[in-house]
Simulated scan of single mutants.
Amino acid sequence: MRYWLFKSEPDKWSWEMQKAKGDAGEEWDGIRNYQARNNMREMKIGDRGFFYHSNIGKEVVGIVEVCREIHPDSTTDDPRWECVDVKAVRDMPKPVTLAAVKAEPRLSEMSLVTSMRLSVQPVTAEEWAIVCEMGGLDPE
C-alpha cells in the first residue's frame, strides 16, 4: 500500500461532502497539473490518503482510500486529464495543521512542506505514521 495527500478547498469540496458520498466515493476530478495527475496514475485500489483542507483551515481532517484506479476525468473532454475515485475512511480525531507539520522536524522533507502548491502528493510510510500519531490515530 502507498500513501498520498489530497488537497481540497473546503468551500468547494469539504471533508463532510466527501463523507456524504459513502462507500461509492467520488472522483478526485479537476486536477490540471501533470505531476498531480501522474501521482494519481501510480495509485492502486486500497491506497490510503490524507484529506487536507487547503486555503481554509490548512489541516489534515480525514483519511480516504482509493476505490477506483485512474480513468478519464468526467469534467473534461481533454484526454490528458485523468483521475481516481476516493472514499472517506475515517475522521482525523485531532486535525493536523500545516503549522504543526512544519514544526515537526521529522516532516521537513514532506511534500506538504516542500511542494505546498501540489494538489495530489505522495506521502512516505514514515510521514504517514508521524501525521497519524499527531492526529491521534494508529497508523495501521
Results as ranks from 00 to 15, higher is better:
M1I: 05
M1K: 14
M1G: 06
M1R: 14
W4T: 13
L5G: 02
F6G: 00
E9G: 07
E9Y: 13
E9C: 14
P10I: 10
D11V: 00
K12M: 03
K12N: 11
K12T: 14
W13H: 04
S14E: 09
S14P: 13
W15I: 00
E16Q: 14
M17C: 05
Q18M: 09
Q18S: 11
A20M: 14
K21M: 13
K21W: 05
G22K: 13
G22Y: 10
A24H: 03
E26C: 04
E26P: 00
E27P: 11
W28E: 02
D29C: 11
D29E: 02
G30E: 06
G30I: 00
I31W: 06
R32E: 00
R32F: 01
N33T: 09
Q35L: 07
Q35G: 03
R37W: 00
R37E: 02
R37A: 00
R37S: 01
N38A: 02
R41I: 04
M43T: 01
M43L: 05
K44H: 13
K44W: 05
I45L: 11
R48H: 03
F50W: 15
F50D: 01
F51C: 11
Y52G: 02
Y52F: 15
H53A: 03
H53T: 02
N55I: 07
G57E: 10
K58A: 12
V61C: 08
V61S: 09
G62V: 08
V64N: 12
V64M: 08
V66P: 11
R68K: 01
E69S: 14
P72R: 15
P72K: 14
S74W: 01
T75I: 07
T75A: 03
T75E: 05
D77W: 05
D78W: 06
D78C: 01
R80L: 07
R80Q: 02
W81K: 01
E82K: 04
C83P: 08
V84H: 07
D85C: 06
V86Y: 07
V86C: 12
V86F: 03
K87G: 04
K87V: 02
V89R: 13
V89C: 00
R90Y: 03
D91I: 02
M92N: 11
K94H: 11
K94Y: 13
T97Q: 09
L98C: 06
L98D: 01
A99R: 15
A99G: 10
A99S: 14
A99P: 10
K102R: 15
K102S: 01
A103I: 12
A103T: 12
E104S: 08
E104L: 11
R106P: 02
L107T: 06
L107G: 11
E109M: 13
E109L: 11
M110Y: 07
L112S: 12
V113M: 07
T114M: 09
M116A: 14
M116N: 09
L118F: 06
L118V: 02
V120S: 02
Q121H: 05
Q121W: 03
P122H: 05
V123A: 08
T124N: 14
T124Q: 13
W128Y: 13
A129P: 01
V131N: 05
M134H: 15
M134D: 15
G135L: 11
G136D: 08
L137Y: 10
D138C: 04
E140P: 02
